[in-house]
Write a protein that binds this DNA or RNA. Structure first.
Lengths: 153, 153
DNA sequence: ATACAACCTGAAGTTAACTTCAGGTCAAGG
DNA sequence: CCTTGACCTGAAGTTAACTTCAGGTTGTAT
């Protein structure tokens, strides 16, 4: 048996946030003791894990509530639940790919500033006489990356 | 020369959102034509790219505004800009790792429902006589995954 | 016995990131 | 010439996800 603060710790959120989640329908399974306090069981931890994963994956609270609702309904919603997961698996894959691209861009800009700092000025990356970044600079960086010459940076 | 709608298209947001970004200080570089309309240059596209990347990476608008502000200041802020990027590179790496973990969890749950659907009931995953998920089930899944027996699912 | 930390509720407040609105300017096509 | 669509501003409205507040109850350590 667990109390609300245990769950808050486990989910790495505040106790108030757990109550907020409950209010929004994420925890219809939670029981109360004789004086009205929330009591969570081991069985509930299965749901807590799911909720935490979905939250971190960026799924909105309302959608998670729908999913949990299906869980409470029983075996006739197995397919909806599967489809929900398959759909969000797709979305998450796409999002991770995008973040990988963003990460690659940040790294190139980091190299850009690293080298600019060494030169004392950003101008080394500009097209002759302008303040526009030379598109070849990015290619130069990609080449160095591919050649494994950027290990120390 | 580009107009606001071109930039909106390029960033994949609405024209109103671009104006909002400008208001929040993300585009101090933008010029105006004689009748007050925003005019973007090729030089500005460098910034647009940076802004879009940072937005997608989840960096708050205010922080991006700070970064852009440094860019306008000149070479004396090169170090701040480098540190900013290094810091967010770190954060993004952590976030991607977390999302990978979430993805792995979603996939295991997908398998859980896939097999439950085939059996017609979720009970196949429960500990004898309870409604608690058998922890060995996840291990079973991981084993199948490692053995490459899940290709078609 | 009593204090006090942890719990409760309903409701109001906050923040970020937009979005919508009201009202106005302007350049180009028919 | 005049209509129309793209642009402008300042300000108000919206939404999600919390957070804070006011006021109340209770189990446990001193």
């Amino acid at each position: 048996m667990y109390k609300i603060s245990d769950i808050a710790d486990k989910m790495d959120v505040s106790v108030d946030t757990v109550r907020y989640y409950d209010r929004e329908g994420l925890m219809p399974f939670v029981e109360r003791d004789k004086s009205g306090r929330r009591v969570f069981t081991d069985h509930d931890l299965n749901f807590i894990e799911v909720i935490q994963c979905m939250k971190q994956a960026g799924i909105p609270v309302k959608e998670i509530a729908t999913f949990i609702d299906w869980c409470m309904t029983g075996d006739e919603t197995l397919e909806q639940r599967y489809d929900f997961l398959a759909d969000h698996e797709q979305q998450l894959e796409t999002k991770i790919q995008q973040l990988e691209d963003n990460l690659a861009f940040l790294r190139w800009k980091k190299w850009y500033y690293q080298t600019a700092m060494e030169a004392g000025t950003e101008e080394i990356h500009f097209l002759e006489g302008t303040n526009v970044v030379d598109p070849n600079e990015r290619k130069r960086y990609e080449q160095l990356l591919a050649d494994g010459q950027l290990e120390s940076k």
